[in-house]
Simulated scan of single mutants.
Amino acid sequence: MSSDQRPDPSLAQAIDPTRLESIVCFLQSAAALKDTLRSGRTASGRQESTADHSWRLGLLAMLLADDLDGINLVRLLQLCLVHDLAEAITGDVPAPCQGPADGRKARERAALRDLCAPLPEDLRHRVEALCEDYESCGSPESLIAKGLDKIETMLQHLIGANPAGFDYRFNLSYGRQITDRHPLLRQMRSDVDAQTRRRIADERADAGTSQTFSA
């Protein structure tokens, strides 16, 4: 065979085209997380998205990896990436509005199935299993992911340009049943709670000053 008859290596298929197409289809649907808004605000006052939150949660997990003995970092990062995928369809429900009988978990499970439907079977099962693990807190990695999820949310509240009347006190009890279950989570929680109490005190002081000037 002459050189001009040999297949061009650059055109060789590294992945089955159908598999690749299904992955891209899923990815395009998951992009809705970029437009799924949460109640928290960024430092500039923009409402943050679920994608914003998931990215920073993954970054936090990566930075803490060397201090988390016995934790599989790859699995931890996978959990951080997929834990809120269903919100691409259901939207976010702020924690103060959640309740055990609100049907949210069933809606999110159904939404996740719909979202993952285009994926190849192996990837669909992998994503669904990760989300189930996260929800049940059935592994050391899911406990850390869930605890850091709470902490990342509270950290965002501390730097966010939140609207007047934002309830910082809610953070002092938010997710404590999770963050109390690991030493590193407890340590971080203690620091975040201290910062939250200072923020509450500052808000009170600012409110008092405004009332003095307006009187």
Results as ranks from 00 to 15, higher is better:
115 L>A: 06
116 C>N: 03
118 P>L: 15
119 L>I: 06
119 L>N: 03
119 L>S: 05
121 E>K: 14
121 E>W: 15
121 E>C: 07
121 E>N: 07
121 E>A: 14
122 D>G: 04
122 D>Q: 09
122 D>C: 03
124 R>L: 12
125 H>P: 00
125 H>C: 07
125 H>Q: 13
125 H>D: 08
126 R>S: 10
126 R>Y: 09
128 E>Q: 07
128 E>G: 01
129 A>K: 01
131 C>Y: 04
131 C>Q: 04
131 C>G: 01
131 C>K: 02
131 C>I: 00
134 Y>L: 01
134 Y>K: 00
134 Y>N: 03
135 E>P: 01
135 E>F: 04
135 E>V: 02
136 S>C: 12
136 S>A: 07
136 S>Y: 04
136 S>K: 05
137 C>L: 14
137 C>S: 12
138 G>A: 10
139 S>I: 05
140 P>Q: 13
141 E>D: 11
142 S>G: 05
143 L>F: 07
143 L>K: 04
143 L>H: 06
144 I>T: 04
145 A>M: 03
145 A>Q: 01
145 A>R: 01
145 A>L: 02
148 L>I: 05
149 D>R: 01
150 K>S: 04
151 I>N: 04
151 I>P: 02
152 E>T: 10
152 E>S: 03
152 E>W: 04
153 T>K: 00
155 L>I: 08
156 Q>W: 10
157 H>K: 05
158 L>S: 05
160 G>P: 02
161 A>F: 07
161 A>T: 10
162 N>K: 11
162 N>H: 15
163 P>S: 03
163 P>G: 12
163 P>E: 07
165 G>V: 09
167 D>Y: 08
167 D>L: 07
167 D>W: 11
168 Y>Q: 04
168 Y>F: 15
169 R>D: 11
170 F>C: 03
170 F>M: 05
171 N>E: 15
171 N>S: 15
172 L>V: 08
173 S>M: 11
173 S>K: 09
173 S>T: 14
174 Y>C: 01
174 Y>M: 07
175 G>D: 03
175 G>K: 02
176 R>F: 14
177 Q>R: 11
178 I>G: 01
178 I>C: 03
179 T>W: 09
180 D>H: 15
181 R>I: 07
181 R>A: 12
182 H>A: 09
183 P>I: 15
184 L>W: 09
185 L>H: 06
185 L>Y: 02
185 L>C: 03
186 R>C: 09
186 R>T: 14
186 R>S: 14
187 Q>C: 06
187 Q>E: 13
188 M>T: 06
188 M>D: 02
189 R>E: 15
190 S>Q: 13
191 D>P: 00
191 D>H: 13
191 D>C: 09
192 V>T: 11
192 V>Y: 13
192 V>F: 12
192 V>R: 13
193 D>I: 06
193 D>E: 13
195 Q>C: 08
196 T>E: 13
196 T>K: 10
196 T>P: 02
197 R>M: 15
199 R>E: 05
199 R>I: 01
199 R>V: 00
200 I>C: 11
201 A>T: 09
201 A>R: 12
202 D>Q: 13
202 D>T: 08
202 D>Y: 14
203 E>P: 00
203 E>R: 10
204 R>G: 08
204 R>K: 09
204 R>Y: 12
205 A>W: 12
